[in-house]
Amino acid sequence: MVGRSEREAPGLGALRHRVERPTPWQPGTQAMNGDNPRRTVTVPFPEGLHLRVAAEFAKRAGRFNCDVKVWKGTEAANGKSSLELLMLGATQGTELVLETSGPDAAAALDALSEFLSSPLDEANDPAPPPKG
């Protein structure tokens, strides 16, 4: 009963509009946005930028006042959103460009690129795994 299912799930039509892609960053347009610091990092984690890394990155990014963007090619994620970071689907070896803009942009870039470059994982665990 397709018709019935659709009535039960309002808004199906609106799903046609997909997540909007941010305007691609072009090297030539960076002057428009000022000289935001950027740094390229290569994803070191064997399992890629998985949920725990994304959540921890977003948490750390959230401590800064500046905007944080993470670019994979022409696609950008808000670095303070673990959901958007997951959407990048960045596997091990993927090159990502971190871009920060705002008052503490330089410090954020240092801290976040270091986090994303270190082959973590256990060192950054907030709690040890349970026994057994």
Binding site: V19, P46, L86, M87, L88
Partner: peptide, 18 residues
């Protein structure tokens, strides 16, 4: 199969972003 897991996460994230 870490690749599959990551693609599934990416997919779920894209849907839930909406």
């Amino acid at each position: 199969r870490p690749g599959d897991h990551l693609r599934a996460l990416e997919n779920v994230a894209r849907c839930m972003r909406d």
